[in-house]
Computed example of a mutant assay.
Amino acid sequence: MKAQSLTLPNDAEAWADNLSTLAVSSLIEEARLSPKPGLVDSRGPGAHQDLSLALMERSARSLRPTFYRLALHSWQRPPDMALRQEIGRLGRQGEQHMMNATGGVNTHRGAIWALGLLASASAMLGGRGTVAAIAAHAARLAVLPDPSQPKIFSKGQRATQRYQVPGAREEAIGGFPHVTLRALPQLRRSRLAGAGESEARLDALMAIMATLTDTCVLNRGGMAALTAMHHGAAAVLTAGGTGCPAGRAALAALELRMLADNASPGGAADLLAATFFLDWASARPSTSSRGCYGTN
């Protein structure tokens, strides 16, 4: 999968391959994680009628060439307009490839944006950046305009305008704060408190859902559904997290509410996959003896 007209060091292709593998693995691990309220997981389609775990995994694997090209074209380049336009072009090609693989179902459009920026940013740093550095470089790319972007509003963009809330672009421009300041700290805090890996990952999802203005939820259930999601996810963490009986009960209650609202937090799912990607790019803390844990 060599990119034409690029002169790169020998390790660039190896790093691009590694970053694309991490990105795809992040999407698959997110899809398989269970139980996730309103989302596709190993139990079923959640609030969706047109999605399945098999379709999500097929979609994720179809994006590997896209993430590879994004990383390769970004290798040790500055975050300038030329690169921004290039990753925009590659991202749109990847989106079309994904839609071909899924029969026209939008499975990972938001994830192409988030993980594409992070894979590009990591490559810009030679594959060796810290979480903070990768997020900062992704933000420097996200803030740049893409003149070739189609002038068609997505559902997410329409929701940000209708409800006057930040969306995926603002999250990226801010350096992915729901990943770096909420999900990753919660993931590592839960591990240190003795949570199992699935429980720690679910806690990270709750940390995102507790405050994210998820446009997928807004599109499906409006502001009432978003508020219910915020309160429900915060209740899981306040109850001690998904490793505790009270936390699991709160998670079950949140799932019932989201299914009743026909709401699926797809934006939170994209950011959880981004959390996995950045987590794997940094050292993991050790775990201690098992116990219930909260957000403090």
Rank of each mutant, 00 (worst) to 15 (best):
A3D: 10
S5C: 13
L6Q: 12
N10S: 13
D11P: 06
E13W: 14
D17H: 08
N18E: 15
S20C: 04
T21R: 15
T21G: 14
L22W: 06
S25M: 04
S26R: 08
I28A: 01
E29S: 14
E29M: 04
E29I: 04
E29T: 08
L33E: 10
L33F: 12
K36M: 09
K36W: 06
D41F: 02
S42M: 07
S42Q: 10
A47K: 00
D50W: 05
D50G: 02
L51C: 07
L51D: 04
L55F: 06
E57V: 15
R58M: 14
S59D: 00
S59W: 02
R61V: 09
L63P: 15
P65H: 03
T66R: 11
Y68I: 02
Y68T: 11
L72E: 04
W75T: 00
A82S: 12
A82H: 10
L83Q: 11
I87G: 08
G91M: 02
Q93P: 00
G94A: 07
E95L: 02
H97G: 10
H97T: 13
M99R: 14
H108Y: 08
H108R: 07
H108L: 12
G110E: 01
I112T: 01
L115G: 04
L115A: 05
G116H: 00
M124I: 06
L125S: 03
T130R: 05
A133P: 13
A139T: 05
A139P: 03
A139M: 02
R140I: 14
R140T: 14
L141E: 01
A142L: 00
V143Y: 12
L144T: 02
L144S: 09
P145M: 13
P150R: 02
F153N: 13
F153L: 15
G156L: 01
G156V: 03
A159C: 13
A159S: 14
T160S: 11
R162W: 11
R162F: 08
Y163Q: 06
Q164V: 07
V165K: 12
V165I: 14
V165L: 13
E170Q: 11
A172Y: 05
F176M: 04
V179W: 02
V179H: 07
A183Q: 03
P185C: 12
Q186F: 03
Q186K: 12
Q186E: 05
S190V: 03
G196C: 08
E199A: 11
A200V: 13
D203M: 02
M209N: 07
A210H: 07
T211S: 15
T211H: 15
C216N: 13
V217M: 11
L218R: 00
N219R: 08
G222T: 12
A224L: 07
A224F: 07
A224D: 14
L226Q: 08
T227G: 15
A228E: 12
M229S: 04
H230P: 09
L237R: 05
G240M: 01
C244I: 08
C244F: 09
A246E: 10
A246I: 00
G247E: 04
A249C: 11
A250W: 11
N262M: 01
G266M: 10
D270E: 06
L271S: 09
L271P: 00
T275C: 01
W280F: 04
R284T: 06
S286G: 11
S286K: 12
T287D: 01
T287Y: 02
S288E: 11
S288T: 06
G291W: 03
Y293F: 14
T295Y: 15
N296L: 10
